[in-house]
């Protein structure tokens, strides 16, 4: 295709992506270098019968004027990145010096907002992804063995949790595990503890969010593997059967290797989607026990009346760097494939 034709064909999509994806990244970076203005304070002396006392008041008009003049705020360099709400170098250093054991150090780190979100996001991604792949494969094999007339309905039912709006899906589960909901109340009865609430403990909140994550993404891996199973070569399966391989051995030595390329695709998709976990935290109102990187950005932006653009920008930049690190192996591999094909 000629360069010129290519350019005209790609122009609409490219300009949309440059204007609303590439430029906003630049804008996020610039924002992250600034912090909000301090309020303009006026010190005046109010004199009464018992002498004069200095009082400080906020000059709202001057603050608003300053805001108008420089909407970005004041320049702060990279300081936002290393303050307490982000990388917190000073706090981490202090914790390292003042704590004896690794456990105590960890306890201090996990109280810093950025690390708390990072640790939850990584745990969520690292637990949900392998569980979903293993269970998805198991269910795909199971559905493949079902009689034909049951396959369609089971795929239909499986698609529901995947396609449902994440916010809505997590609300549906949240109402069920609510202490008055069907699951929550049953659990209270089983343990005979009316104060037991899944929302009250950190461990239970994390479990709940991870269970939601598995419920929501399992269909994707199941359906992809199910489609892959339809392409397993009959000959190899028969040969393995004649050689006396048991069902389990055929699974491990024929089916799993055949699905390996699919597995790397599913892993990539799941990593990308799990890394941005966000809606369930809003729905479950879980922020007291679990926050994610996406959630702290959202929270900074919603700070009522006075959104913290600088802080949100810094977290966003670090999240984007995290995504790129996550994708590097894939990018390198695709690049190798491409250059091999090209030459």
């Amino acid at each position: 295709m000629k360069h010129r034709t290519f350019f005209w064909f790609i122009l609409p999509t490219l300009s949309a992506m440059i204007l609303f994806i590439a430029l906003p990244i630049v804008s996020v970076f610039i924002q992250s270098l600034f912090v909000e203005h301090e309020q303009v304070l006026v010190v005046s002396e109010s004199c009464g019968p018992f002498g004069c006392t200095p009082t400080t008041t906020v000059d709202t008009a001057a603050t608003a004027a300053l805001q108008e003049e420089q909407p970005l705020g004041r320049f702060n360099g990279l300081n936002t990145y290393i303050n307490r709400s982000h990388l917190a170098f000073a706090e981490v250093g202090e914790a390292w010096r003042n704590t004896e054991t690794f456990g105590a150090f960890w306890k201090q780190i996990i109280n810093l907002p950025f690390y708390r979100a990072l640790i939850f996001t990584l745990t969520y991604t690292a637990v949900v992804t392998p569980v979903v792949i293993a269970l998805g494969l198991a269910i795909a094999v199971g559905v493949n063995n079902l009689p034909r007339f049951l396959k369609g309905p089971s795929i239909f039912i499986s698609l529901l949790p995947f396609l449902v709006t994440p916010l809505v899906g997590s609300l549906i589960l949240f109402w069920m595990v609510d202490s008055d909901g069907v699951i929550g109340a049953t659990i209270q009865r089983i343990f005979n503890d009316p104060s037991l609430s899944l929302k009250a403990s950190t461990a239970l909140t994390w479990t709940m969010l991870i269970v939601y994550g598995v419920w929501h993404t399992l269909p994707f891996s199941f359906i992809t593997f199910y489609a892959g199973l339809q392409t397993v070569p009959e000959d190899t399966m028969e040969a393995a059967m004649i050689d006396g391989a048991s069902k389990w051995q055929r699974m491990i030595h024929v089916i799993v290797p055949h699905l390996a390329p699919l597995m790397s695709f599913v892993t990539l998709m799941l990593l990308m989607d799990n890394f941005r976990v966000f809606e369930p935290i809003v729905s479950f109102k879980a922020e007291a026990h679990a926050t994610s990187l996406s959630w702290i950005i959202y929270n900074d932006l919603r700070e009522s009346g006075n959104p913290l653009y600088g802080s949100a920008g810094a977290t966003s930049m670090m999240t984007i760097i995290g995504v790129v690190i996550l994708l590097t192996p894939v990018l390198i591999r695709t690049w190798r494939d491409f250059s091999r094909k090209a030459h």
């Binding site: 790609i10 490219l14 992506m17 609303f20 994806i21 430029l23 906003p24 990244i25 630049v26 804008s27 996020v28 924002q31 909407p71 970005l72 990308m272 890394f275 941005r276 966000f278 990187l293 996406s294 950005i297 959202y298 900074d300 932006l301 959104p307 653009y309 949100a312 920008g313 966003s316 999240t319 984007i320 995504v323 790129v324 996550l326 994708l327 894939v330 990018l331 695709t334 690049w335």
Partner: peptide, 22 residues
């Protein structure tokens, strides 16, 4: 372009939103 699109696809949407608001 396809690689850039892949990276864009992986970015959490909320990171972009913080760039739009101002």
């Amino acid at each position: 372009l396809l690689m850039a699109a892949l990276v864009f696809r992986a970015m959490p949407h909320i990171t972009l939103v913080s760039g739009y608001l101002l």
